[in-house]
């Protein structure tokens, strides 16, 4: 166990935000989960007693008789905003006094940094470069993430859970988002920051960064495993595999979705439904491709003269 190496990584000034992000995220996940649990219990209670559902007990903190429903922004909101500003300023001050912003040697195009890492918030995408070509990891994926986020309100037809924390009423939506945000985005950033060392090789936390380490790894392409040699055959084979994944996966999602989310299924238009299936399958394709690489050393699935997937 190389504690010094571990400390060097964790205390690198630009890594400190990620060290801070982990407990912050854990805390807010807990805060959300606690309120979702409270609301879910309340919902379960109200479902069994329709009489109670007609009363004011529609919130975990219902209005007591005699309470004002609305309070003045001044002072009740503004004092919170003011306090928040002061607290953030103090945190920033302390942070800025105790930790210096990094400054390396002057830039030198002839001296490559190893590892050369993007800013920490893009490390998830850089980690994807291991498994995908740059045009996917660096261009298509960010575009799909942005577009995918933007279509969320238009494909989520579930009217429940609008304006309160809940898990049971929105299992599918929240599950998908947590998968995308926590596992695909934050976890990849953590791997990119704490695990990836020189040569973008995998170093466990506490393992010494060995700059001369070589890994003998022969990556194969999926068509090779099936003995397909011709370029034309590889292109057709890859198209069949990728197309087959979207068809079979789409069918699987269809089978599950109409069973477990019948109301949403009924509500969604064909366009909404197909967009949802496409983004879900694309999202799931990332860990699948990673597994293919890690478990079977497979580099490409689909090889064409113009692009490889």
């Amino acid at each position: 166990m190389d504690w010094r190496q571990l400390w060097e990584i964790c205390s690198a000034p630009d890594n400190v935000p990620i060290v801070a992000l982990i407990p912050l995220l854990a805390f807010y996940c807990y805060l959300a989960w606690k309120q979702a649990k409270g609301n879910d219990e309340l919902i379960a209670e109200l479902e069994t007693s329709p009489a109670m559902a007609k009363t004011r007990y529609r919130k975990t903190w219902p209005f007591e008789p005699g309470w004002q429903k609305e309070v003045h922004v001044w002072p009740f909101l503004l004092r919170i905003e003011f306090l928040a500003a002061i607290i953030v300023t103090i945190v920033l001050m302390i942070w800025s006094v105790t930790l210096n912003a990094p400054l390396e040697e002057p830039s030198n195009p002839n001296l490559t940094m190893n590892p050369a890492k993007a800013p920490w918030y893009f490390l998830g995408l850089q980690e994807m470069l291991v498994y995908f070509d740059p045009w996917i990891a660096g261009v298509v994926m960010p575009t799909l993430i942005i577009v995918g986020l933007m279509v969320i309100p238009y494909i989520d037809t579930n009217p429940l859970g609008n304006g309160y924390y809940t898990w049971k009423q929105r299992k599918f939506a929240i599950g998908s988002f947590l998968f995308g945000f926590i596992i695909l985005w934050v976890a990849m950033i953590i791997i990119g920051t704490f695990i990836r060392g020189p040569g973008w090789q995998w170093f466990w936390p506490g393992q010494t960064w060995d700059h001369s380490r070589l890994i003998y790894e022969v990556n194969r392409d999926l068509p090779d495993l099936f003995g397909i040699a011709s370029n034309f055959g590889k292109a057709i084979f890859g198209a069949v595999v990728v197309g087959g994944y979207y068809l079979a996966g789409g069918f699987l999602i269809h089978a599950l979705f109409r069973r477990y989310n019948p109301k949403d299924y009924q509500r969604m238009s064909l366009l909404q439904y197909s967009i949802m299936v496409f983004f879900l399958l694309t999202m799931v394709a990332l860990p699948l491709k990673m597994m293919l690489r890690l478990a079977f050393n497979i580099k490409y699935v689909w090889i064409t003269p113009w692009f490889n997937v």
Partner: peptide
């Protein structure tokens, strides 16, 4: 967006049919 009143699944009729995106 304040904490809204919870809506029950039994109140969601899902009968409006597909809305166009």
């Amino acid at each position: 967006s304040g904490p809204g009143s919870v809506v029950l699944a039994s109140e969601d009729k899902a009968q409006r049919g597909p809305r166009h995106a």
